[in-house]
C-alpha cells in the first residue's frame, strides 16, 4: 500500500482530467482525452527525431547546469569561508537574485548567437544563484568544533577544507543542485520556445501553433518524465557520495 502512495495524487489528477474531458464542458481541443495524449506519447518515443529533440534539450540543460555547478560551488565556498569574499560577493548575489534572467535572453542572443550557446549561458546564470546561495549557507554552517579539532590536530588549511569543510557542505551542495536542476530544464524549454529551431521547447511551440494540444501535452509529459529522471539520478548520486547523511526524516 505504501508503495502505491506516490502514485495516488498522479492518478487522481489523471482521473480529474478524464472527468473534465468526458463532461463535455470544454472543447476536446483544449482538454484532449488521455488516450489521445498517450497515443501521441507513444508516437514521440517511436520517432528517432523526437528523441533527438529531447537529447538537444537535455545536453543544453545539463551543459549549463554543469558549468553552474562548478562555478557555483567554488563561489559559494569562497563566500562561505572568506569574510572579504562574502563582503564583495554577497551584495551582488543577493541584489541580483530576484532579476528574472529570462528577460536578458535577447541580449544573450546577440552576445552568443541564436544556437545552443545563448541557451546554455542563460541556464548557467539561472542555476548559478541557487547553487551559490545554498552552498554558501552550508559552508558557513560547518560545525566549528570540527574545524577546531582539525586545527588542533595540525591539519593544513587545504586538508581542513578537503577533509572537513567540503564533506560537511556536501549535503547543502546537493540541495543546491536539486533546486537548480529543474530550473535548468525549465529555462531550456522556455528559451527554445522563444527562439530555437530544435529542442523540446520548439516541439511544444510547434504543436501549439498547429493547435495540436494532445501533442503539446505529450511533450509536456516527456519534459516531466525527464525532470523526474534527472532528479532521481541526482538523489542516487547524492546517496552514494554523501553516504553518511541519508535523506531520512523522522516523522512525529
Amino acid at each position: 500500500m505504501r508503495r502505491l502512495l506516490p502514485f495516488v495524487l498522479i492518478g487522481a489528477a489523471l482521473l480529474a482530467w478524464e472527468l473534465v474531458v468526458r463532461s463535455g464542458l470544454w472543447s476536446p481541443l483544449l482538454f484532449p482525452p488521455l488516450e489521445k495524449i498517450l497515443s501521441e506519447l507513444i508516437l514521440f518515443f517511436s520517432k528517432s527525431e523526437s528523441l533527438m529533440e529531447a537529447w538537444v534539450s537535455l545536453y543544453r540543460a545539463l551543459g549549463g547546469f554543469a558549468l553552474a555547478a562548478v562555478a557555483g560551488v567554488a563561489i559559494g565556498m569562497l563566500m562561505g569561508r572568506s569574510a572579504p569574499a562574502a563582503a564583495l560577493l554577497d551584495p551582488f548575489f543577493s541584489g541580483t537574485y530576484a532579476i528574472p534572467k529570462i528577460a536578458l535572453f535577447p541580449i544573450f542572443i546577440f552576445a552568443f548567437g541564436i544556437g545552443s550557446l545563448s541557451k546554455l549561458a542563460l541556464v548557467f546564470l539561472e542555476c548559478l544563484y541557487p547553487i551559490v546561495i545554498i552552498t554558501c549557507q552550508g559552508a558557513r554552517s560547518v560545525n566549528r568544533v570540527l574545524l577546531w579539532s582539525a586545527q588542533n590536530m595540525g591539519e593544513s588549511r587545504l586538508r581542513t577544507f578537503a577533509r572537513v569543510v567540503l564533506p560537511a557542505t556536501a549535503p547543502y551542495i546537493f540541495a543546491g543542485f536539486r533546486v537548480a536542476l529543474p530550473v535548468a530544464l525549465i529555462v531550456v524549454i522556455i528559451t527554445e520556445m522563444i527562439s530555437s529551431a530544435d529542442g523540446l521547447g520548439y516541439v511544444v511551440i510547434y504543436a501549439l501553433a498547429s493547435l495540436k494540444t494532445d501533442r503539446m501535452l505529450a511533450v509536456v509529459a516527456v519534459i516531466a518524465l525527464l525532470g523526474l529522471a534527472l532528479d532521481r539520478a541526482l538523489v542516487f548520486l547524492r546517496d552514494r557520495l554523501v553516504y553518511w547523511e541519508k535523506l531520512e526524516t523522522y516523522y512525529v
Binding site: 535577447p106 542572443i109 546577440f110 548567437g113 541564436i114 522563444i194 529551431a197
Partner: peptide, 24 residues
C-alpha cells in the same frame, strides 16, 4: 527549409540588429 537553412523565431524588434551583426 530546416535542413539547408535553419528557420528561427525571433521578435520583430530584434530583427534589424540580428541581421546587421550576422546572428541571422
Amino acid at each position: 527549409p530546416d535542413k539547408d537553412t535553419k528557420v528561427f523565431p525571433l521578435g520583430f524588434p530584434a530583427m534589424g540588429d540580428a541581421v546587421r551583426t550576422g546572428k541571422v
